[in-house]
Simulated scan of single mutants.
Amino acid sequence: MLNLTQVGGRYFFSTGFSWTEEVMRYSMIWLMMLGSVACIFRLEHMGIEALETLVRPRFVRFVKSGLYSVAGIFCVVILIYGYPLALRNAAQVAPASGIPMILPYAALPVGAVLMLVQIALSWLTGFEPDRPDEADGLSNGQGGAV
């Protein structure tokens, strides 16, 4: 919607709204960090699937554990550097939109913490996502329409 506002303002009114570009950029940062958490939850990271196919099925759990360990270390690094960075920029304000700069910078530590929580939960559940069709008995023919 913001992109449509930017393009419409540029072509229909011969002026662009400078704040829309900033808000879109900051929204994309948050979207990327929160989307990463969702990918960990759903076990949909592309690199993990690619490496899983290279090993025997009995070693898949070890590959996932190693990959999630590397991701966890990366999240800790993001948290260690991202949190002080967000605090240092708390007094700044975005020039066009007036958004306090702590909001875009806070996406890094917040996303890193949420990813760490999801990685820990993945380790505890054995890297197996809950499948709704298996939980209610639909996968073995016990259910469906009457």
Rank of each mutant, 00 (worst) to 15 (best):
D130V: 15
N3R: 02
F59Q: 12
V117M: 13
L67V: 05
L124D: 00
I78H: 00
G72P: 05
E21H: 11
W123I: 05
M28C: 10
G137T: 08
A94G: 11
E44M: 08
G47R: 03
L85P: 00
L87Y: 08
L103F: 15
G72H: 04
V55H: 08
V55Y: 06
T125M: 09
A135G: 09
W123F: 15
L43F: 05
P57L: 07
L34Y: 01
F17V: 14
L54F: 02
W30I: 02
A90I: 10
E134N: 09
T53M: 15
G82A: 03
E128F: 05
T125I: 08
Q6L: 10
I29T: 12
I99T: 15
T53Q: 15
A94C: 07
V7K: 02
Q142D: 15
A91L: 01
I73K: 08
V77R: 02
M46G: 09
L116Y: 04
I73T: 14
T53P: 00
F41Y: 14
L114D: 06
M115V: 01
R10Q: 11
S122D: 01
W19I: 07
R58D: 08
V55A: 06
G144D: 02
V23F: 05
P84I: 03
E44P: 04
L87N: 07
V93I: 05
L103K: 09
P109Y: 05
I48Q: 04
D130I: 15
V37W: 06
Q118C: 13
L79G: 00
I80M: 14
L54P: 03
V93R: 07
I80P: 01
W123E: 03
C75F: 12
G66R: 08
N3K: 09
G82V: 07
L103A: 08
V60C: 10
G9I: 08
V7P: 00
G126H: 10
L103P: 05
A90H: 05
G72Q: 01
M32F: 12
N3E: 13
F74V: 06
F12W: 10
S122Y: 01
S27P: 08
T53V: 14
V7G: 01
P104R: 04
P95Q: 07
F12D: 03
M24H: 02
G82L: 06
S139G: 00
M46W: 05
